[in-house]
Design a protein around this nucleic acid. Structure first.
Lengths: 342, 342
DNA sequence: GCCCGCTGCGATAACGTTCTCAGCGTGACC
DNA sequence: GGTCACGCTGAGAACGTTATCGCAGCGGGC
């Protein structure tokens, strides 16, 4: 038994002859080791847990694909859980995955402030890599896109085209109402670790304005009531039907893009004549509408790959300082933005 | 130890008092049972394996969401693997999942003819539920959409509008070239168990023609070279630029829809004036283009739910005859189809 | 010729549960 | 008062691996 184990695991000392015999035998009876038993003793399961908001969202679907690709390459498989951005669900999911003894966790934290359960996982020796959001309350690797720069570039582009009234449709789940006032406040240079992705992207919007010396009209930044297409449509509709409506509209993720674009269609606005429009995430359909959408592209697959790679390194014993990997976005200028009519 | 186990698992006989003591103790030290050890003895892992072509595809993303929702409800979690429609990868994946001792498997078989590894899993006691495709070579439950009826309805609609030359863009990976001739042959009523989804959908196209007494021009059914957007674009471009081009175009899944629609855009065809267009899968963007796309809608989430439910029943010991669950599609008539100009 | 070291292998503990079984105490019935 | 039944508990096996350890055998050096 022990010898067989050594032969298969080839560690320790086994003569070439016996090894061959063992291999032949296992081959013949179709022996497959029981990975549960193995995991018990090695304390490694070779699987990682992925907890994301919603796999049906194209963004997470792309990221998860990247994760699974890289994980498989490294010999890990992937347990998938959806949270719908609910912290309680996330907590349960993490507990469950820990019970299943995953070797590591990749998570898009529902609330970047409520991360004790993630800290708990780390303490128990399970490395955690954050995706899509950074949390300053957690000392963990994080792979995100440079959210601030992304929208900053988009808004700079619009400002350069002469736009002065630029609307933004953002889902901003406000943990504390005070933060909201704070966000629009003067401190635009603070660390973004306490910001979720949408807040960080809004920050880019604000910074671009400041850099250009253009004042921000707070009534142009729209918080959607709920994080879904319908909420975004409503918010955009309200914004686009008011007197003195913006000449340009920026969305901050693909759900907001669909929602806002729906409002544009309903109101039968002409792009880019009536309105310049900037989308988020380079999905297939954005080149299929007329005009094609100018947008911010995130390297979804790469986000996943990098996160998985980082996690595998951690699992393999890397204990350097946690890193924040900021991947660059691409700003793709297509037909939906143009110089403001004067 | 044994008593504690009984108290927690509440089976066997334990006095109320001891149970309370045990519960208190576990509470205090934050005891969490090791599910590996438990699984070893119970031979149940409470996890299921999902092997699909590509989680980044909106169809599978939606289905997998349905699976995870239902699985979680039943206390299972989900191991996810992508195959990219490659049988060898699928075989490996199944072997891996079996090693991990999943309680059941949900798989969209890459090749409905090569399913011995799935039969093997069944033999070893791991139930298998197929999704999106049926295999007559495997005695397993399957949850699909009524593929034949879906395209049959779509084509009937077009025929009713007076179209006589209806193109179809289908990815038809042909396992044996003979089958291709066979598919267009006279035997339209055979069991669809040996057909993958795209072949079954093509069958609906053929049947609708036969029912209407309209002959099929084989040159209008296009096999894409590869299963991707680019392949579909090329095929559609070729079809739409030939002399005597079709007056209507039917696509057979969401990838083909994007690809074909891209060709329509390139060629700057007017919908539905120059061409009537039928898409597949009711994705958000299909209402965002002008005109909105007439299409076949699949209940993606429900496919996943039903598959998971069926699998859980099997795991719980149900051993009735395998069932083929055919979910109905919805045909949504929107703006991209119209009566043929006469 | 003896001893030492090295090689190969089997016995055995360990991982953390569940489950079976036997034993023990107590109460009731004969 | 004895016996039987029953409720509860703890000891121990089992699940299938890996890891440690000691032992046997053998060759070489002194």
């Amino acid at each position: 038994m022990a010898t067989a184990s050594r032969a298969l695991g080839n560690y320790g000392r086994v003569s070439a002859e016996t090894r061959a015999r063992v291999l032949a035998a296992t081959e013949q009876i179709g022996y497959r080791p029981n990975s549960l038993a193995r995991s018990m003793i090695t304390r490694r399961t070779n699987s990682i847990g992925v907890v994301c908001a919603d796999i049906a969202s194209p963004f997470f679907a792309g990221v998860v694909r990247g994760i699974t690709d890289e994980a498989k390459r490294a010999g890990f498989d992937t347990l998938l859980v959806n949270t719908d951005e609910d912290v309680a669900t996330e907590r349960e999911a993490v507990a469950l995955l820990m019970d299943k003894r995953v070797d590591g966790l990749i998570v898009s934290a529902a609330d970047v402030r409520e991360v004790e359960h993630l800290a708990g996982a780390q303490e128990r020796g399970t490395p955690v890599v954050l995706i899509d959001r950074i949390s300053s309350m957690l000392d963990a690797d994080a792979v995100t896109v440079d959210d601030v720069a992304a929208t900053e570039e988009a808004v700079r582009h619009l400002l350069g085209l002469g736009h002065r009234r630029i609307g933004v449709i953002a889902e901003l789940r406000i943990e504390r109402e005070a933060d909201w006032a704070n966000l629009l406040g003067p401190d635009l240079d603070r660390d973004r670790g306490e910001l979720n992705a949408s807040a960080a992207r809004l920050l880019g919007y604000l910074r671009a304005h400041r850099a250009a010396g253009v004042p921000v009209d707070p009534s142009l930044v729209c918080r959607t009531g709920s994080y879904d297409v319908g909420g975004a449509t409503e918010a955009a509709r309200a914004l686009l039907t008011r007197t003195n409506r913006p000449t340009a509209l920026v969305t901050i993720d693909n759900v907001m893009t669909v929602g806002a674009f729906r409002a544009v269609r309903e109101l039968d606005l002409d792009l880019p004549g009536d309105l310049s429009f900037v989308g988020f995430d380079n999905l297939d359909w954005t080149t299929l509408v007329r005009p094609a959408l100018t947008l911010v592209e995130q390297p979804m697959h790469e986000i996943g790959e990098q996160a998985a790679r980082r996690l595998v390194e951690r699992i393999s014993g890397d204990d350097q300082e946690p890193r924040r990997i900021l991947l660059p976005t691409s700003f793709l200028v297509r037909g939906s933005t143009a110089a403001v009519e004067s």
